[in-house]
């Protein structure tokens, strides 16, 4: 079983039904590349294709899953990096809004630390990526820490929580 499965069932037993939990947990396996993948999942779970599709839609509508789709490996398409800024509290809303306005920025989190703004940016190559970060530095007057992945040590067993 998946690493998060046990925790999921403990936490969410009151909120999620049997099928919903199984769809989340069993999604550690890749969505099969067959003409009717949801029918195959339904067969494994002993339910109907329509029920699987409706349940996934419900999970998506409620925000338990953000989408059903491909997870790309970092730095295989274009260049991406984690970046951090130490933003004064009273400028945080403005700076976060400015950072978010870049389509190159796909994740942005506020964290409790001197470096309180953490985002992931992706561009077509490293030059374009650095240009975005430089522009953010110039517009905010705040230094941007450039923290690209040098090595990935995680053994991906599936159902990963999506971060960077």
């Amino acid at each position: 079983m998946h690493r998060y499965s046990k925790n999921l069932q403990q936490t969410e037993s009151s909120q999620l039904g049997f099928l919903e939990k199984h769809l989340l947990n069993d999604f550690q396996h890749n969505l099969p590349l067959v003409p009717r993948p949801f029918a195959l999942l339904a067969e494994e779970l002993g339910t109907s294709e329509q029920t699987v599709i409706e349940t996934l839609q419900l999970l998506q509508n409620r925000g338990y899953i953000s989408r059903v789709g491909a997870i790309f490996r970092a730095n295989t398409i274009g260049a991406s990096t984690l970046a951090a800024m130490a933003v004064p509290e009273d400028e945080l809303e403005n700076v976060a809004g400015m950072v978010n306005s870049y389509t190159e920025v796909n994740h942005n989190y506020q964290r409790e630390h001197h470096f309180n703004l953490w985002f992931v940016a992706t561009a077509k190559d490293e030059t374009a990526l650095r240009q975005v970060l430089q522009e953010i530095e110039q517009r905010s007057g705040i230094a941007v820490l450039y923290l690209p992945m040098l090595e990935d040590y995680h053994v991906d067993l599936g159902f990963e929580l999506q971060w960077t």
Partner: peptide
């Protein structure tokens, strides 16, 4: 592509 599936 790492995998295709639900993004929790």
């Amino acid at each position: 592509i790492r995998r295709i599936g639900a993004v929790p």
